[in-house]
């Protein structure tokens, strides 16, 4: 197990290095630079070309790409994400709170969605093809196929405008305590939960149905082992394993920001920050957020692998 962790850890670090390099070059070759897109047509109209060039030089936008790449890598080693191009503010300051908020939303969502998704899977296992399962899986498919912004707008229309029990949009600040922020965001949480239940429920249901048709469940059934014990002790862990990698990726995608939900509810998360940074060509912020997303994906993957190897002894070397 230790060697597995070390091996996977090393692999994860190598992956991260490659991803960081990829992120750097992918973002640096974006058309346009921070200055150009931060100026309106009015401003470009009035600014003499030499002033534009001087300001570009001030912002370091005229340095060769290799030099900037080495600077980027050097910064990473010192945990320095750099500063924004226009405001010269530390990127870490800009990214920290939105990242915290996205993680909180993801954590709350998963905490509430996972039990429900498991319940759906168990219902499916108990009653495959019968009314309950059909209803539940039908709802899950609908939940999965409706885009989040539609769910969100629908929830707003119903629970904020028509029957105003929840706020339509989030007016809490980015750095409010999480309790304040989440209390201001019930509809955003519900929207992500609906999507998560649909997604995770589908994965777990498929896994559960497959496991319930397996030889060992039949053997246990024919041995008269109580149903609850078959479901909980035998089938559930086995059903979770194949979906774990997908679920980990999903969790990572939650953390790295559900842009749509953040846009619809103005939730101060990392996804909206990314969109803002991309449109403003704030390359360093884009890089930091992409890097955070990469770290999320890689570490959740690592966790999933460790989880799988805990649950499935076959993946541990004998």
């Amino acid at each position: 197990m230790i060697s597995l962790i070390l091996r996977r850890g090393a692999l994860s670090l190598a992956t991260l290095f490659l991803l960081a390099t990829f992120i750097f070059f992918a973002t640096e070759v974006l058309p346009g630079d921070a200055l150009d897109v931060s100026l309106s047509a009015d401003e470009v109209a009035m600014m003499p070309p030499e002033v534009l060039a001087r300001r570009k030089a001030e912002l370091g936008l005229d340095r060769p790409i290799l030099e900037r790449y080495l600077g980027f890598l050097g910064g990473l080693l010192k945990f320095d994400l750099g500063r924004t191009i226009i405001t010269r503010a530390p990127v870490a300051d800009i990214v920290a709170m939105p990242l915290r908020n996205s993680m909180a939303l993801a954590a709350v969502t998963l905490l509430l969605a996972l039990p429900v998704a498991l319940g759906i899977a168990m219902a499916a296992a108990q009653a495959k093809g019968r009314g309950l399962d059909n209803a539940v899986s039908g709802a899950a498919i609908i939940g999965y196929s409706i885009p989040e912004f539609v769910t969100g707008l629908l929830l707003i229309a119903v629970f904020a405008v028509w029957w105003p029990i929840f706020p339509a949009t989030i007016t809490a600040s980015t750095d409010d305590p999480l309790s304040v922020l989440l209390a201001a965001a019930p509809l955003a949480v519900i929207t992500t939960i609906i999507g998560s239940i649909a997604y995770l429920g589908r994965i777990l249901r498929v896994g559960m149905i497959e496991v319930m048709a397996s030889d060992f469940v039949e053997r246990l059934h024919l041995s008269g082992i109580p149903r609850w014990r078959i479901l909980l002790v035998h089938a559930l862990p086995a059903a979770v394993i194949p979906g774990l990698s997908a679920a980990a990726l999903y969790a990572a995608s939650l953390v790295s920001g559900i842009v749509v939900v953040e846009m619809v509810f103005a939730y101060p998360g990392i996804g909206a920050e990314l969109v803002r940074a991309v449109t403003r060509r704030e390359v360093h912020v884009v890089q930091a957020i992409a890097l955070a997303a990469a770290i999320c994906v890689v570490s959740f993957n690592l966790l999933a692998d460790l989880g799988i190897s805990t649950l499935d002894p076959r993946t541990r070397s004998a």
């Binding site: 707008l153 707003i156 229309a157 904020a160 405008v161 105003p164 706020p167 339509a168 949009t169 007016t171 846009m263 619809v264 509810f265 103005a266």
Partner: peptide, 12 residues
Amino acid sequence: ETALAGLRSGQF
């Protein structure tokens, strides 16, 4: 859309 929803629900 968000802003108008907020307006209609009285937040804005």
